[in-house]
Design a protein around this nucleic acid. Structure first.
Lengths: 209, 209
DNA sequence: ATGGCGGGTTCACTATCGGAAACTGAGTTT
DNA sequence: AAACTCAGTTTCCGATAGTGAACCCGCCAT
């Protein structure tokens, strides 16, 4: 994570999105969303102001929409970009969901400073975002800005040793097995102080479910 | 077409996000990000594969980049889309609480089947409850009834191997590093299937205030 | 059948994007 | 002060996105 939002990014991705390096089947997703709401292309056209033909082409991956078009989409459909990018995962409203992630089987999302592995990303509607992170950063300087995101975060060091920099406190060394709970809108950043990259498990709260 | 506002609202609520009204000053944000990292347009051009001129125009809101261009940006810069769209301007009301728990320094709470160690118990008002558990139980029979509580639970096996019994699914073997997310009002119970007691980290959601 | 209709795709055209190169302006060097 | 460099802007043009209209279905009703 380079800046602020790596983790925030992680948070949003955790809605189940694929890593951004991949194709990002925008069209597929749009179609799914449209059909899920039983909208016709005309309906969506009305809502978004985009031409029917344009929508058709976007859905069939015949064109790459401009960003303004994407904005019209998210505004018109009353959704958020992460949601638009979130692969469809029709989750039943029934309770008793579960989502298994085998070791190493999460969604990897590398950045210069961190390497996130999102866990349990099959489940879209959940109140916590768990992810395992390999901390590559070795110096606080590698962050251009504080990481911050709404809510609270719990963190446990699984391997190695890290230093947790926070906006309002002195840097704090955390060894394997140590854990910390903090308000994540306070700027924070992790660097590894062990020989090898450190590994931490984080769980963030998610904006109201 | 269907009525809009209701479904729209429903969608929004379902997604748990606020509508995106603001213009999304992409160019501005990109420039901020670039300057924060002390990159020149040429640097970014190298990283993203987009032409210098194109980047300039994006920054100055002279063009609306296509979505493929945006993808090149987020890939090349090692960031995520939400990060690109999220102004680093921090929201003001940070409480900035934190609660450190050194390894083994939690509140121990033994039961016949489990031995819980509550983590971060200094903090009263929090939305997640993290705890480490040593699983002593070796057989499902040791439980007189299902464990269940409102909300959701995330669980990762830190050591050993366990079998997770749940009300609605077949028993599931989880080895070290495996994790699972589930609705915790579904009955559940853990037993260790490794030689020694297994250790798991759990995080539960807490009933909302 | 036949025709009308609603939903989606394709076509032809214009608007606009993306890239190479030329340009501007501020330093630096000679 | 001319020449050079470097960062960013602007220009020009080929490529492509966005649009309305035409077209192509499957469906329903005489």
């Amino acid at each position: 994570m380079t800046t602020t939002t790596d983790q925030e990014a992680a948070l949003r991705i955790a809605s189940g999105r694929k890593p951004l390096v991949e194709p990002l089947r925008l069209g597929e997703r749009l179609k799914e969303l449209r059909l899920a709401n039983q909208w016709t292309l005309e309906d969506v056209s009305q809502r978004t102001g985009l031409a029917r033909s344009t929508l058709s082409k976007i859905e069939n991956d015949q064109i790459s929409p401009t960003f303004t078009a994407v904005q019209k989409l998210i505004n018109g459909l009353g959704i958020d970009l992460p949601q638009l990018l979130t692969p469809p995962r029709a989750q039943p409203r029934t309770m008793g969901r579960r989502d298994l992630t085998r070791s190493g089987g999460g969604q990897h999302h590398p950045t210069p400073t961190y390497e996130h592995e999102l866990l349990s990303c099959e489940l879209a509607q959940k109140r916590m975002i768990p992810f395992k992170t390999i901390v590559r950063a070795r110096s606080f300087d590698e962050f251009s800005e504080w990481v911050r995101h709404d809510g609270e975060e719990f963190l446990m060091v699984l391997d190695g040793e890290i230093c947790l920099y926070t906006e309002f406190y002195e840097p704090l060394a955390l060894a394997q097995g140590d854990s910390i709970y903090f308000d994540s809108d306070m700027g924070h950043a992790l660097v590894s102080v062990s020989d090898q990259d450190a590994v931490v498990l984080s769980v963030c709260t998610r904006a109201d479910p």
